[in-house]
Design a protein around this nucleic acid. Sequence first.
DNA 1: GTCATGTTTCGGTCGCAGCCGAAACGTTCC
DNA 2: GGAACGTTTCGGCTGCGACCGAAACATGAC
Lengths: 238, 238
Amino acid sequence: MSHSASGDGVAGVAALIGEPARANILSALMSGRALTAGELARHARVTAQTTSGHLARLLEARLIVVERQGRHRYFRLASPEVARAIEALSVIAGAGPNRTLAIGPKDEAVRRARTCYDHIAGQLGLALADSMQARGLLVHADGAGAITHEGQAFLTDFGIDMTAPARSQRPLCRMCLDWSERRHHIAGRLGAALLNRLLELRWVERVPDSRALTITGIGERGLDTRFRIDVRSPVPHR
Amino acid sequence: MSHSASGDGVAGVAALIGEPARANILSALMSGRALTAGELARHARVTAQTTSGHLARLLEARLIVVERQGRHRYFRLASPEVARAIEALSVIAGAGPNRTLAIGPKDEAVRRARTCYDHIAGQLGLALADSMQARGLLVHADGAGAITHEGQAFLTDFGIDMTAPARSQRPLCRMCLDWSERRHHIAGRLGAALLNRLLELRWVERVPDSRALTITGIGERGLDTRFRIDVRSPVPHR
DNA sequence: GTCATGTTTCGGTCGCAGCCGAAACGTTCC
DNA sequence: GGAACGTTTCGGCTGCGACCGAAACATGAC
């Protein structure tokens, strides 16, 4: 008679995510981009009417937000917290019985580098975390991390200002467990800033209709000189 | 046609959690204790038969594990990852429209100190994190944390050995977002060790049928002398 | 204005899954 | 042995909600 606070609300949110069509919608939005209702309908593999209903429910529960633009409506995840919950669910789902071998060549690009809401995941994400750790820019002890003074300097030089006062409540540097690699990569405000900067420099580019990121030629060279990351080498599997 | 990896598995797990009865079961198990099917039936407010079915499905999905003991079957959450996902969902659920005022005096104990799977949450959890931060035992920068050398020494002296090689993959020190306070407390192996030690010392005690923890007289004094935490003072709200 | 496109509302069908009663099964205690 | 208790299986009921077709409602292009 006291479990109202915990169980009830959780069930509602989870039930919302627990519908295949809605889960597909949310997964598509995990790319971090804002997508239209029509695009989401295609991702979810249901008709536009059905999608419309789902979107209405997701909006009411504040899992997503919308922005009108002409005759389109662009949907985004409402907050990093929502992305976190979905990622946490992915971790459990991925840990299932025989999931490890069930990946085709199609997903290879996704495993190499992809967006995780607003930061970089996949092998590139891990490599960035490992590299910064090895050079003393980041204290990344066992799934938790903090930026060192050297790290602050490095980032400023790289074009990322992390010294600005936190106007948002969001953690500066959080580590996010990767569903494909089962290790942590950089999330939080730093993770978002890194992704932005890499896109800005055109070191990586988004792949349409996918969470995947491609590493450009400039990116390969840049990652090598600035981060000592050799993109072509076999992936570190620790 | 490439979203099999993300959306599908997530939907299954979320649907499992998204049933009120099952959510209640999982919430009850968030206390970290192992409970019998009968107890869980009472928590979930459904009959034993119904509960049995739910437990079977949760077992098959590996969200929980079971241990026989005589004519009882004791259920536990399968892993910290499961607890994480549930906590992440709680955060979203709690952020809903007018949830902030919907708490009665009954929940006050739960807000003061409670278990969050296997570590301490609530105001006491925050106080511990803040205290260790202030004394330089923990680098707890914005939602991510690592133990300092001074921290290692302090913990050893306090009866917690964190220097042992990590036999499990589990993070040493992770920060967990609190659904009632919206700030981070200490989780990971350190969080679990702290809860264990405090129970061992009888500084805190479990409340039957609840996630709540009570702070004993010894505990009050101990927390004051060792951690500089004044349990009686108005809670720090930052 | 007309037409095309993106999105929502309405109405009705259908299937899944949660629920319980009854009964069977297994274990412990006396 | 029998009785009590905890748990599971079976069968049948019931209701919620996901889905689509059709049509209405917007917005923008011409």
